[in-house]
Design a protein around this nucleic acid. Structure first.
Lengths: 130, 130
DNA sequence: TATAGTGTTTATAAACAGTATACAGTGAGC
DNA sequence: GCTCACTGTATACTGTTTATAAACACTATA
């Protein structure tokens, strides 16, 4: 992640910028694009790339640190931690199911075709097993 | 939807209540649980059931009306409109793909198993074709 | 034409998001 | 050791959003 090209911020979106950053970096972490030991760009660097204030990026880093993904300490750049997934949780399962249903409903509502949605779900499911 | 049992609000969630209501009702609309012509509960009634202020529910109804799902007019109860899905939109497709990726990543991060996720994606994809 | 129902409007308080600025720790090079 | 350029932190401040409250206005019906 030497450049910020993998993250895109939409200032007009209804989801706040700090959460956009958290969500997108978390995705890279889960997918292994940012492996344990990797250094993240400094808050100022990433903020400049994204066109937001560095405090907003710092806030996002803090959130990810609280989730156990990052080690952040004063004066040093943020680093990806090795992280074991927390224990499975019935509540998290249920929440995922509901949010997935809602996301699909919203997509349909916006005109995304059933075929397209099914194919995205399928391809993601296929890539899931490893 | 004579009772509010199909909607559940989490006051501690990070997503605001008005959006929780919108998302859940939209899901019912897309899935046909609330068919065109159906009357929705009054804002006061639903608000009481959910434990929030009726202005919050009114705000949610207004959002769904702007999306073309509901007809609301002063003094009469909200009613579900027949609604044709908007034209497919490449941007909406892309946004759906990204948000789906992020949702899955978040679930994994919270300990939902790959198997569980894959099975949810699968079963949703299967039920998609109609 | 009451009256009990509906959603709307305006005002308010609290929480949140984003920024600016001053601060403090770290480490490489001198 | 010192310095300098880099890191993240803390506090204060602004505008926005969220949720509520209360007064309002429209509709249906008895």
């Amino acid at each position: 992640m030497s450049d910020g090209t993998q993250i895109r911020i939409d200032l007009d979106a209804s989801t706040p910028v700090n959460r956009q950053i958290v969500d997108q970096i978390r995705t890279l972490l889960v997918e292994g694009v940012l492996p344990p030991g990797a250094d993240l760009p400094s808050v100022r660097r990433l903020a400049t790339d994204l066109g937001v204030h560095f405090a907003t990026v710092a806030d996002a880093y803090r959130t990810l640190a609280e989730e156990g993904w990052l080690e952040i300490s004063h004066g040093r750049s943020a680093r990806v931690l090795p992280r074991r997934a927390p224990a499975a949780d019935r509540e998290a399962d249920e929440l995922f199911r509901r949010r997935l249903r809602q996301l699909v409903a919203e997509a349909r509502s916006q005109g995304v075709s059933a075929k397209k949605i099914a194919s995205e779900l399928d391809s993601l499911a296929k890539g899931m097993t490893p």
